[in-house]
Amino acid sequence: MTSTNPASNVTKIALVTGGSRGIGRSTVLHLAARGVDSIFTYRENQAEAANVVAAVEQQGRRAIALKLDTGVAASFDAFVGRARTAIGELGAERFDFLVNNAGQSLHKAFDQTTEEELDAIYNVHFKGVYLLTQKLLPLIVDGGRIINISSGLARVSMPGSSAYGAMKGAVEVLTRYMAAELGPRGIAVNTVAPGAVATDFSGGMVRDTPALAKRISDMTALGRVGLPDDLGAMISSLLSDDNRWISGQRIEVSGGMLV
């Protein structure tokens, strides 16, 4: 990945939702190591976001943190205005890479999931991805890249994850349509589907529960649970020019979980 946009001779810029922790944080840092500046969103924890900005600056790159709840579509117009300003602060008019990563979990049996819980998962994991990407399209360069984060739970069925897994499945279908419709602009769109990753997602369930981590490790070909850097490294690599001919694909990054 080169650090400049050939069309405008400015540093490449990524916009990563949910970039203050976990997979999103790792993605921002790995992109910085490749010479890419970032705008990333956080929902509540400004101190966490500031730590990511500082870590990027230690690598000699720049990052700007913007507050956003991706489950509130009514806020997207205002956010796009703030994103446009941030892009300008980074010396450009448009950005190169969009990573739709922000999410929240729900572990609830199918027959116990409420309408309110289903709506919350839908708003973040499908409606938010759909509408925020729409709003940001005018700011994405022709020849840019979009990655939508899915989950291994769209491929395998684990009891208690019906709402979450179904919305991730919808995002995978959406990705293929986006790839087809945005192809004329040279924009590649792909899905990255993590397996179980040791982060604070789901209250740190995988990271902080040794018995669960062992059970997952036992069903994974490479013999362990995933780490944020396993995903951040892969996502930043997928955005590089080396992978310019990949579009409309689902790539699972799980260490061979339940193969």
Rank of each mutant, 00 (worst) to 15 (best):
A50S: 08
S157K: 14
L98N: 07
Y42M: 02
A92S: 15
E44L: 14
F79M: 03
M178Q: 10
E252L: 05
A166R: 11
G22Y: 03
L90I: 13
Q59G: 14
P6L: 04
G18V: 10
P6E: 02
R94K: 15
N101G: 05
G248D: 03
E116V: 04
L66R: 04
A78Y: 05
I147C: 04
G35P: 03
T199V: 01
T27P: 05
F110Q: 09
S151E: 12
P159T: 00
R43T: 15
V225Q: 05
E115Q: 12
S3W: 00
N51W: 03
G24E: 08
G232D: 08
N5C: 12
L132Q: 13
A50H: 10
V259S: 14
V36N: 05
G183K: 11
V72L: 14
H30Y: 06
L212S: 06
Q59C: 12
G88V: 14
A7D: 13
M1F: 10
D241L: 09
N9H: 10
V173G: 11
M158P: 12
I246R: 10
V225D: 06
H125L: 11
Q46H: 09
L132W: 12
A198T: 07
V72F: 09
E93H: 13
S247I: 01
I149G: 10
P159Y: 01
A86F: 00
N9A: 13
Y130V: 11
T4G: 06
T4V: 13
H107R: 15
I13P: 03
Q59E: 07
D242W: 11
R94C: 04
M234G: 08
R62W: 06
L98P: 07
N5A: 07
G256H: 05
K168A: 02
S26K: 05
G103A: 12
V141Q: 14
V141G: 09
E172G: 11
L29T: 11
P210H: 06
S26H: 00
L153W: 14
D242S: 15
I121D: 08
G255E: 01
I87M: 03
G186E: 03
N45Q: 06
E57I: 04
A92D: 13
S254V: 07
G81H: 08
R207L: 13
S157I: 13
A7W: 11
D96E: 15
E44Y: 12
V173A: 15
H125D: 06
V10W: 07
L68N: 09
T85E: 15
R62C: 04
P184W: 01
L15V: 03
P194F: 00
E172Q: 12
V124E: 03
V36K: 06
A47Y: 07
L137Q: 06
G35C: 09
M234N: 11
N101P: 07
V36D: 04
G19Y: 00
R145P: 02
R25G: 08
P6V: 04
A65D: 08
Q249R: 04
R155S: 13
E172Y: 02
D229E: 09
N190P: 07
Y130G: 08
I246V: 15
M158S: 14
R185I: 02
I187N: 00
V206Y: 10
L258S: 12
D242L: 13
L66A: 06
K67R: 15
R215H: 14
L258V: 13
E181P: 01
R82P: 08
F79L: 01
N123C: 12
